[in-house]
């Protein structure tokens, strides 16, 4: 395959891990890999190059504008200018979806979404996506000509350096967006967070409805902190308003693959498990012997979270 573009995003001043994952996969599939950035390219060129991007097409500062319409229009202009890639890979992220959605309408092309595996079969790209809570895998490919658009779930591929030299920075001008570009970010708020990010942490401790009440979630945070990990949640307690959506693990939340995942008071619905069953080791604490989570746990503890977790915290604190 000729050329794949990767929509690269920034997180905490660095290239987001999902973007590095996509670059690694793109290198396996294409002769030429290039990055597209809604923002400044200079600061990212070294890292993108080290992960295999030959060029970074950068729009420059979006001045508070949202990535969706700006980056999609800029990509279309580049394609019209003769620079069409065979495929564009996006992460299933806040901005990735926006850009892919806008682009799909502009190109009149579908997007293959929720992709967890990408391979080349008879010269065309095939994306695989889990359905029915991850119990069945469906593979899809485009049957038309044109640019293939893929939205890939984070943690599907491992990031890997290629040792490449810094990417060449090329300007990707944003055409006039008209009304579509009218939304402006006027302020940014960072929620206080300590410790590693949920989808990058080596240890994830998650709580579910079995905690009984919102206040008990602090126990999950304490345990996560003691293990140098991040705190996650089932959708049940996100929907109940106990914790923000950013904590949600599962089909409609984050996919995590830590070394250790500790599920506390979580039943193990398929939609939850699809987000964490790739973890290396799973520990589950649930008072119901029949809880489905025990079906995938390396260590299952039939017990009360209100007894087991505080003791665990105490014992870890005692070790200092």
């Amino acid at each position: 395959m000729g050329t794949i573009w990767v929509h690269a995003e920034v997180s905490g001043g660095k290239v987001a891990s999902i973007s590095l994952e996509l670059l690694a996969k793109a290198r396996e599939l294409a002769d030429t890999v290039e990055a597209v950035v809604g923002g400044e390219g200079e600061a990212l060129a070294a890292e993108l190059g080290a992960h295999g991007a030959a060029t970074v097409h950068a729009t420059g500062d979006l001045d508070g504008g949202l990535a969706g319409p700006a980056v999609a229009s800029a990509i279309v202009a580049a394609i019209e200018g003769g620079a069409a890639p065979d495929a564009v890979l996006f992460g299933t992220t806040y901005d990735g979806r926006d850009v892919a959605g806008r682009l799909s309408v502009k190109l009149g092309a579908p997007v293959i979404t929720n992709v967890v595996e990408l391979e080349q079969v008879n010269g065309s790209l095939v994306g695989t996506e889990p359905v029915f809570g991850g119990t069945v895998n469906v593979s899809t490919r485009f049957n038309g000509a044109g640019v293939g658009l893929f939205l890939v779930r984070p943690k599907s591929f491992a990031a890997e350096e290629s040792g490449g030299s810094p990417a060449a920075v090329s300007a990707l001008p944003v055409p006039d967006l008209g009304a579509t570009g009218a939304a402006r970010v006027v302020d940014r708020f960072a929620e206080e967070s300590t410790g590693p990010k949920l989808d990058e942490a080596g240890v994830v401790v998650s709580g579910g409805r079995g905690l009984g009440e919102a206040e008990k979630y602090s126990m999950i945070e304490d345990l996560a902190k003691l293990l140098g990990g991040a705190a996650g949640a089932s959708r049940a307690i996100v929907d109940a308003g106990w914790v923000p959506y950013s904590h949600q693990v599962g089909q409609t939340g984050k996919v995590v693959k830590p070394d250790v995942y500790v599920a506390c008071g979580i039943s193990g619905a398929t939609q939850h498990m699809v987000g964490m069953k790739g973890s290396k080791n799973i520990i589950a604490i649930n008072k119901d012997t029949e809880a489905p989570i025990f079906g995938i746990a390396d260590l299952g503890v039939v017990g009360d979270v209100h007894k087991v977790v505080p003791k665990l915290i105490e014992a870890l604190q005692a070790r200092g």
């Binding site: 997180s11 949202l66 806040y94 939304a183 302020d187 940014r188 708020f189 990010k197 959506y245 950013s246």
Partner: peptide
């Protein structure tokens, strides 16, 4: 919603 918290968008 954003990865870090939230943006206020007008």
């Amino acid at each position: 919603q954003t990865e870090a918290g939230y943006d206020e968008v007008r």
